[in-house]
Design a protein around this nucleic acid. Structure first.
Lengths: 243, 243
DNA sequence: TACACTAATTGTAAATTATACAAAAAGCTT
DNA sequence: AAGCTTTTTGTATAATTTACAATTAGTGTA
């Protein structure tokens, strides 16, 4: 390691031994949003140890010395929710010197959107309490987690327009109304039903089935499926929703 | 530090002493784009030491133990360009286990857009060669810097539509043609002049001056200034360019 | 069986915006 | 004064958005 000297500032920096740079750690914090029937929630854990004992916090963990950053995020998501096929992507890294009371720890925030109903009741290997919290009723959070949550919520609004993470919270056959509700809930706006449907009809990745709802006390809706392949093609060409 | 135990996996992880987690380091790499007269370039340095000796690389440095992440990025930008009032914002963190041959080092990429003409010839405190490279002629880069550059270029295209970083590469009084050229160069498209101008005329943050170009051998263009205040207001309301 | 009820689906006219050009204007140059 | 170049304005058409209204297809009820 001795050759890797910081090179920009020669004067004061060279007086810091290189070992001092290798006394920090990094963690991953996961912002796991859950969408179910027009409700947006986030998964929080209650801490069982100091610092911030008993505070609610985003689920997170230190990254193993031999573990990729992305792998760490997937591991945490899986341990918490048992879900493995959910895309979890980086949001931002938080690196204030004093953000962790016990040492220099920077944390990388990751974001996922899941359907809570998909979760098997998760194993108790996790000591602390785990709970969904409505996005409008968030308790005081440990560390800088409130800031991380706010940034992640903005990022969620952005991603739902540019990526297909919304597809994970819809059943395999869904109505256009359900589709619309996902966007209305996450973006916090509402759209004219007729116009929304007309806009959406152009998208080739929504395929209409020869099948309709049953046992609803009104005109049954036609069902659609999501064709991930087609979406990927359009995304390559720069597609994004414009709601 | 002893209380901060990783909590997710209890079995194998608890056998790793906590100290092992504090043997990593993090660095900041700066992707400094330069725009000048329809040319987009990036600032690279040539490494003077192993690993990757003599390779071109993004300017970067380890983060001081007592230095915020954002501060480290500003420091590097300032040392390299002497510029201090340029916004430099995080792009993404790269954290593959093997990305650095000499140890576990994750790096946080930052992005800035500057006007090369603003740079005072920068001090020689930096040992290695520093050079602007056209975005279309990038040599082989050290580490995973090519990937970092690619991701950052995408991010630049995105940010130029959502933020006012373009304002730093225009003179304080500019023509609408100059304004248009910035977007054409960075986005890699071209726009109809008349239509572009009509669209842009609506934006209140572009203020027309009672002043025109001089000594040009054609009809002189009216000059405009950028009103950052107005832009900030519109951005709060969700404004972004739609080119 | 017919009628009411609900939400799905389709339709439409007006307003707005985008697009592709063309024409006119204003300096400098010769 | 005529020509050159780029700016600036204009315009007719096409395309899209918007705000509603009307119709439809089921279920539940009289």
């Amino acid at each position: 390691m001795e050759n890797y000297q910081p090179r920009l500032l020669q004067d004061d920096l060279y007086s810091i031994p290189i070992d001092e740079f290798f006394k920090s750690a990094f963690s991953v914090d996961c912002v796991i949003f859950g969408y179910h029937e027009c409700e947006l929630r986030v998964l929080l854990i209650q801490r069982g140890t100091e610092p911030f004992e008993n505070y609610w916090a985003l689920p997170g963990d230190l990254v193993y010395p031999n573990e990729d950053l992305d792998s760490a995020a997937s591991r945490i998501l899986k341990d918490l929710t048992t879900l493995t096929n959910i895309p979890i992507k980086q949001v931002k890294t938080f690196g204030k010197v004093d953000r962790h009371p016990l040492g220099r720890v920077i944390t990388v925030a990751y974001l996922a959107l899941v359907e809570p109903a998909d979760l098997a009741p998760h194993a108790s290997s996790w000591a602390s309490q785990t709970q969904w919290h409505s996005i409008n009723e968030i308790p005081q959070l440990a560390f800088d987690h409130r800031q991380i949550l706010d940034v992640s919520l903005d990022e969620l609004k952005n991603r739902v327009l540019h990526e297909d993470i919304w597809s994970k919270v819809l059943p395999s056959k869904f109505t256009l109304t359900q589709f619309q509700e996902v966007f209305e809930t996450i973006l916090g706006k509402s759209f004219d039903k007729g116009n929304f449907r007309k806009k959406v009809a152009k998208y080739k990745f929504l395929k209409q089935l020869d099948e309709a709802q049953k046992n609803v006390s009104h005109r049954p809706s036609l069902l659609y499926t999501f064709e991930a392949q087609k979406f990927a093609e359009m995304k390559l060409k720069g597609f994004s929703f414009e709601f």
